[in-house]
Simulated assay, not measured.
Amino acid sequence: MLAPNTEVQEMVIGLGNVGEEEVQSDYGISDELQSCSSTDEEDIRRRPTYVEFNDETDMKDPHFRIGMKFRSFKQFREAVRNYGIKNICVMKLRPNNSKRCKAFCKKGCPFYLLDSPMATDRNTIQIKSGCLKHECTKDHKNRHVSAQWIAHNYLEQFRANPSWKAAGIIQAVRSNQCVDISRLTAWRAKAIATRLLEGDEEDQMKRLYDYRLELLETHPGSTIMFRCIIGMFQAMYVCLSPLRAGFLAGCRRIISLDGCFLKSFYGRQLLAAVGIDANDCIYPIA
């Protein structure tokens, strides 16, 4: 009986180790022979490809993978928050800076994601490591469901129903996200949605002079005046030339004053000079 050759055994063991390293690499096992002088096309083909996160298709129901790429840390953080809302769990972000961001479950389960810039492209963020398994219970008081999030995700409902009550908002969030919110959060969400739909009053006030120029360009001969005290807006007078000409041409020579209170942030009153046309209907003049 021949004695085993130790050199042959060492060679076999060495080859076995090489095979194990190839399984753990990004390239996997390939049966093709690679030449020493490989072309750029072969390098591109052998380079691993990673999934890129898409806001339009992935943001409402995020599914993370190791190696997934993001446009920025902001996009990654938003995806983590939406993931927590969808899976009814509270996520924490720590550390959270310009070099790396780690997301993990609040209740201490193994789930975590470690995100940092890619070595080849510092503007692209990539999930470098993580554990995608949850071992915690659902958390029905989720701080990720904030007033800002509700306003943006239920914006069309607020548009269709401007008088949506707080009780209805609470019930909608409880049914869709399985999360309980307070009445204060519901009222804040409605206020934010109203501001998004109607615009910010302060920004609108800054554009009054642009509005005046637009009216004078489209309605020549109109009278538009402002009253300001030390640069602060006090009042505005508008009389469009077509309305003035229509009153003089076909309305009774009676002018009345109508008014209402403005239920806006600044309040005040809106006064209108009105007449009566040939059909006994109110005709606005100024």
Rank of each mutant, 00 (worst) to 15 (best):
C178F: 09
G16M: 09
M232E: 15
R195N: 15
E78D: 13
Q9S: 10
S182H: 00
L93M: 14
K165Y: 05
H144L: 10
N176L: 13
L248F: 04
M68H: 01
A193N: 09
I230Q: 15
R252H: 06
Y27A: 04
T124L: 12
E198F: 08
L248E: 13
L248Y: 04
Y237K: 02
Q234S: 11
R244S: 04
K74P: 01
C136D: 11
A3T: 00
L184E: 11
A278D: 10
F104E: 07
L196H: 08
R71V: 12
G16H: 07
L33A: 15
Q75G: 04
I282L: 05
N142V: 01
R207F: 02
K60Y: 04
F233G: 03
M1A: 00
M11L: 09
E10M: 02
A193T: 11
P220D: 03
E78G: 13
C36V: 06
K102M: 05
E56M: 06
A272V: 15
I125Y: 00
V12R: 11
G14A: 07
T39G: 02
K133I: 13
E10W: 05
L132F: 05
E52L: 04
L240Y: 02
R174F: 10
N279L: 10
E10V: 03
R94V: 09
D40N: 05
N176F: 09
Q126W: 00
S129N: 08
Q157F: 06
C89W: 01
Q269D: 09
R46H: 11
Q9E: 15
S146V: 01
C260I: 05
K86Q: 11
K128I: 04
E156M: 05
L33I: 13
R100N: 07
G84C: 03
G259L: 07
D61G: 08
P4S: 06
M59I: 13
D61L: 09
I88L: 05
F104R: 06
Y237A: 11
E21T: 06
F265V: 14
E201R: 07
W187T: 14
T49Q: 09
G267I: 14
A151I: 11
E201Y: 12
L216K: 08
K165A: 12
K165D: 11
S116W: 07
K138N: 10
K107C: 03
A167S: 15
Q269R: 11
A3I: 00
R268W: 01
H152R: 13
L132R: 12
T223I: 07
N5D: 14
R268Q: 11
L33S: 10
W164R: 01
I255A: 13
L113H: 02
G19Q: 08
L215W: 00
L271M: 12
I44Q: 08
C89K: 05
I170S: 10
L114H: 04
S256C: 15
E42M: 15
E22Y: 07
L15H: 14
K99V: 06
A160R: 13
K128T: 03
L114D: 05
P117M: 01
K102Q: 06
W149G: 03
V23T: 10
M59V: 13
S72M: 14
R143G: 09
A103H: 00
D61P: 00
S175F: 06
S30T: 11
I29Y: 14
E7K: 09
E135Q: 14
Y209W: 09
N96P: 04
Q24D: 09
R174P: 02
G199P: 03
C101A: 10
A186L: 04
A119H: 05
D258M: 06
R188D: 09
D180C: 13
C281G: 12
D121W: 08
N142E: 05
